[in-house]
Each structure stands twice: as C-alpha cells, then as structure tokens.
C-alpha cells in the first residue's frame, strides 16, 4: 500500500507524521520504504538517519544549437511551450532553466541543427536506516526551479515503490510537485493545524486529492490551538479525522533536537500501527472512496 502525507500549509508536521508512521510500521515487521519527495527542502533523513550510500544525478535533456547549420527559421521557438528557446537577430538562444526537456525543438528542426545535452537539476540519495526502512530522497540543486523531474525520477528509483508499504512525504502546497508526489498513492493523509491558515491550505490540498480521485483523511497536529474550523470543515465534506497530536512543549523540543515523534512519545508507535489497519479496512470496505 502506498500512503502519501500532504498538507497544503508548510510546517504542519508532514515529516513528523511520515517518519513516525514509517518507523511504527517497520517495527511491526512490515517491509517499509520512506520516500521524501520534498526535494526543495528534504529533511526526513534527519529523523530516520539512513546510511546514504546510493546516489544518482537527475538530468533533463536540453537543446544545444549548432550555429553553423541553424538557419534561424524559428520553428523551435514556435513549438516551445515554455519559451526556453528564442530566435532573435538571427541567433537561437536557449534558456536552460525554463526547459522542461520535452524534445519538441529537436524534432521540428528541419536542419537537424539541435542536439540534446544533459542539464543537471539535482541528485537522488538512498540507503537503509538502522531499523531497516528503505529510504530515498531527492535534492533539487540551488537555483533550479523545476522540482517535478526530480520527484518523478525518485519515484521510479531503486524499486523504492515496490515495498509492502510505501510512505511518501510530499512537499507543501498544492501545485505540480505535490501532484507528482501524490500520483499513484492509494491513500493520502492530510496533516493540518487547527488554524484558519491551516484550514485555508487544507481545502486546497483536499481538492487536489479529489481531482486525483484518491481517498484521504486528516491528522490534526498541534491540537488545542486555533479554532474549530478544521473540525467543522471535515464534518461538512465528510473526511475522517484520523488522529490528533496535541501541542506539547515536549514534542516540539524533541523534533527540534532531531528526535522522531516515536522517540519522544513511544505510545504513538501503537497509534500509527492502528492507523494503518484502520486505513486498510476503510479502503477494502470502500468507505471514504
């Protein structure tokens, strides 16, 4: 089963939940992999402490124009949806950071003046944790704006997605990198905080899960602050509240020291194991679908 953790708002506790969930299930003898898709700021490794011993670059192929055979006809610039290639003053300019690597310019060039060269966007790192969790994350290079190719390659890397249980830690927000992370999941846990800001972004994230057609439930983190908006919303749209993690100084301190939730609050091992069974039952009975 593939379970993705998303939130909408950043800093609600996605990684806290994802790492605790993966740890709890691996202690129950499941084969578990944890895939940190938040490639702009991956941090699940801090809590899982895998030994990273596998590395692979992520490249997209970008056009390289041979100025001698280019006639400046402009077909490549016309076909490019992202304006990554521009023909001006008889010269053909390539803007690598805008290129999505689709290859259309190479295909339409009547002079075969375009060849494709790899442009590095980031790197994948993977390895096993001491508890036996198979771990992988991507790191987007500084200055590169496109996270999706890194996430997409991560999800096909090293058979990470073949484990009995795959826990996906999604980036915040509700845009392309989130969609790429959630795609293919069997269930989505939306982690939110009970504040107007948390609710605002939860609504957007929930809409993404609906468009993708993936059942979802909510974990309220820092329960006890804010207002009752998230509870009202979940009752309105009929999403289950799966768990409430209270606002406690002890938890905050532990996380800030790089301790996982299970280290600070061992009773959550049992809660997350129960949660997994609950999700399995809901999915098999067709509830929540």
């Amino acid at each position: 089963m593939k379970i993705a953790i998303a939130s909408g708002k950043g800093g609600t506790g996605k990684t806290t939940v994802a790492t605790a969930f993966a740890q709890a299930l691996s202690r129950k003898e499941y084969s578990v992999s944890l895939v940190d898709c938040d490639v702009e700021a991956p941090n699940a490794h801090i809590f899982i402490q895998p030994i990273l011993d596998q590395f692979e670059d992520v490249n997209v192929l970008i056009p390289s124009v041979d100025a001698d055979s280019c006639t400046g006809c402009g077909l490549c610039a016309e076909v490019c949806q992202f304006h990554a290639i521009v023909v001006i003053g008889g010269k053909t300019l390539v803007f690598p950071e805008m290129c999505h690597g689709c290859g259309s310019c190479t295909l339409v060039c009547p002079e075969q003046a375009i060849s494709e060269i790899p442009n590095r966007l980031g790197v994948l790192e993977g390895g096993l944790s001491q508890e036996g969790i198979r771990f992988g994350h991507g790191i987007l290079d500084i200055g590169e704006p496109m996270a999706v190719p890194v996430i997409s390659k991560l999800k096909k890397w090293q058979n990470l997605m073949d484990a009995e249980i795959v826990v996906i830690d999604s980036p915040p927000g509700a845009s392309c990198p989130v969609v790429e992370s959630l795609r293919g999941a069997d269930y989505i846990i939306l982690v939110t905080e009970p504040t107007p800001f948390g609710l605002h972004d939860l609504r957007q994230a929930y809409q993404v899960t609906q468009v993708l057609g993936i059942p979802a439930g909510i974990i309220i983190n820092r329960d006890g602050i804010g207002d009752t908006g998230v509870d009202q919303y979940s009752a309105e749209v009929g999403i289950d509240i799966l768990m409430r993690i209270p606002l406690e100084r002890k938890i905050g301190q532990g996380i800030a020291q790089g301790k996982s939730l299970l280290e600070v609050k061992p009773e959550y091992e049992k809660y997350f194991q129960q949660l997994y069974l609950q999700i399995g039952e809901a999915l098999s009975s067709g509830n929540n679908l």
């Binding site: 992202f82 803007f95 805008m98």
Partner: peptide, 15 residues
C-alpha cells in the same frame, strides 16, 4: 502574463 520567460518574450516583441 507569460508563465515564464517574460523578459525574452518582451524583447522578441520589441525586436
């Protein structure tokens, strides 16, 4: 309202 690459597109227009 270009999604990206507004600068180069503006220059193409001006050119």
């Amino acid at each position: 309202n270009a999604r990206g690459g507004a600068g180069p597109q503006a220059v193409q227009f001006l050119s």
